[in-house]
Amino acid sequence: MKTMLVDKYMIRKQNESVVLAQIIKYGTISRAEVAKLTGLNKATVSEITASLIEKELVEELGEGSGTKKGGRKPVLMGFNQQAGYTLNFDLGYNYVSSSLTYLDGSFVDTKKIKNFEVNRDNVMEILADIINDHRAKCQASSTYGLVGITIAIHGIVEDNRIVFTPYYNLDQLDIVAELGKLYDIPVIVENEANLTAVAEATFSSRDAEIVSLSIYSGIGAGVIINEQLHKGKAGKSGEVGHSTLYPNGRPCPCGNQGCLEQYCSEKAVLEAFSQETGLKAELNVLISEYREDNPVALQLIDEMAFHLSIGVNNLICHFSPETIFLNSAIIRKIPEILSLIKSHLSSSFNQEVALVNSKLGANATLYGAAAISIRRFLELKSLDLTVKES
């Protein structure tokens, strides 16, 4: 009897997740449409939606249009995105970005602190100050308040613990445990590139197989296979930045030599630019010099595109995705880099893969972080918040 009750409960939870996912996906929908999409009978859908309305996760929006045959007009429902908030961080080696969002991922408040060293000694104080400031923006009338905190780490994460960070020492700190001492809020840490892939799969693409290539202090690839994040053993999937580009090449903090990210990450390109020109290792300076046809800047951008094309080619051969999203501040400022990369991809393996500049841009990591917290809170296997067609 106990097993039957457990099975019945699990089936009910699964059906509730299926119904809620469809309501979120379509934005405005009737009970009859939900029943048709899910294959559940109308009585079950009515029972589940009544529960979701009681939980204030769904709200009735009024009557829809009737059919040509007449009859009762359907009552439309929608997701109550203001029922709670998520708080999201992108911890770079020299900046901290954050966002407070509703449960549909829309930003309520954002902050960015930059041009300083992030390390294990200062990060907890910084996080606490930002969390407290964002929490003050949460409406007291919100049903669930702050439902989760997700932190993007530029390194390897396994089982919600930071295990390797090449450009700062946060792997020497258990951020989840430390925040747990201060707040009774679920905390998730995740690799930054993985979160950009989750963001693309949630907010901009309905492809089942995608890769998001994140090019900043290092280079990482978030991989979505069959609509699910692929993390590999010990969370090391997608560490394309540490694939060998040149054997016995430049040393890398990972212990290898000649890693891809030592030649075409944003950090590597800016440092090379500064060393060769004596100018500041700043993005706006590089862009300005590139537009002025500075030969060093031109050469570095051309080399960056060539080196990235090798990484892209390897990703295509390994994962055969439908789309590869490139997320890079340099590429956003110099979009012609995308054409340069494509010009180096002549293999027949490359021709059916779309290579696109991420529309989510610098906020992709924060969007992905929000999606992770939202999915956990709502107990959803997948979440579709792509822009609805009007």
Rank of each mutant, 00 (worst) to 15 (best):
V118G: 07
I324D: 00
Q139Y: 10
R291C: 09
V75K: 09
I175V: 15
S205K: 00
K342F: 10
T38R: 03
Q262S: 07
A50V: 06
G220F: 05
P335K: 02
I48P: 03
R120I: 01
P186A: 13
H344L: 04
I374F: 01
A272C: 06
D207S: 13
T386K: 01
I130C: 04
A199D: 08
L173C: 08
Y95I: 00
L385P: 00
I330N: 05
T110H: 11
E289H: 11
Y102M: 10
G241I: 03
S214F: 15
S390K: 14
G92C: 04
L229T: 12
T202S: 08
R31T: 12
Y93P: 05
V96W: 11
L355C: 02
I153D: 01
D171H: 14
L146K: 04
P186Q: 09
K181N: 13
A50L: 12
T143H: 14
I337L: 12
E352G: 00
S390P: 08
D159G: 08
S347Q: 07
Q351I: 04
A201F: 00
E336K: 06
R161I: 01
F377L: 06
A364Y: 02
Q172H: 12
I330S: 05
E282Q: 14
N115D: 14
N115H: 14
H154E: 09
R250S: 05
G70M: 10
V189I: 07
L380R: 00
F273R: 03
I48E: 02
V187Q: 07
F377K: 00
K388F: 07
S17Y: 06
V240S: 05
F325E: 04
Q262H: 01
K267R: 15
C259A: 10
G78K: 11
G235N: 06
H307A: 10
V189L: 11
K236Q: 11
S339C: 04
C317T: 08
V18H: 08
V312G: 03
P247L: 12
N248E: 13
Y85F: 12
R135Y: 04
M1F: 07
Y95T: 10
Y167M: 10
A370Y: 01
T3P: 06
D129Q: 13
N160I: 02
T3Q: 13
S65F: 12
N363F: 02
V18I: 15
I287A: 00
N169Y: 03
R376I: 02
K8G: 10
F164E: 01
A221W: 07
H230Y: 15
Y102N: 14
I53V: 14
H230L: 14
L37F: 07
V147T: 03
S309K: 02
P166E: 05
A362Y: 00
S217N: 11
E261P: 10
A369M: 01
E158S: 14
I29N: 07
V118H: 13
N115A: 14
I341E: 01
G148E: 04
L170M: 09
L360T: 08
P335L: 04
F203E: 09
E117Q: 14
A297C: 05
G311Q: 01
V353M: 00
T28R: 13
S390W: 12
H344A: 09
G27V: 13
G218E: 03
N15Q: 15
L179D: 02
I185M: 07
L182P: 02
E158D: 15
L20H: 06
I175S: 11
S17H: 10
